[in-house]
Amino acid sequence: MKILIVDDFSTMRRIIKNLMRDLGFNNTSEADDGKTALPMLQNGDFDFLITDWNMPGMQGIDLLKAVRADEKLAKLPVLMVTAEAKREQIVEAAQAGVNGYVVKPFTAATLKEKIDKIFERIDSNK
């Protein structure tokens, strides 16, 4: 399972990377905004995307929309991990086709629960 972690703060990328390793996912890559992430997704064989919302360059919500609009990437599961907590934003992300939404600050247990849920749903849809 190849995972891309997108966040403009390197400390947060490291935290998520370590939590993912704890959950048994060792193959992670990092990008610091949507603009660098999108070509990585298009050229790589990623199975899962974890992205922040508020980033310079290209924001996470626009990355999500670009992924959904890309024929090759449209089905990629996307988990949003962000401090953005306005109700309208959560609704917007849901409408854009996000698979899960974790609000910062979060716990390791929350992240695990959301990821498990996403893969459960994918497995049951197979």
Partner: peptide
Amino acid sequence: LSEILMAQDFQDL
């Protein structure tokens, strides 16, 4: 160690 890891989430916020 995990606790120390998670305690660093303040930097982003």
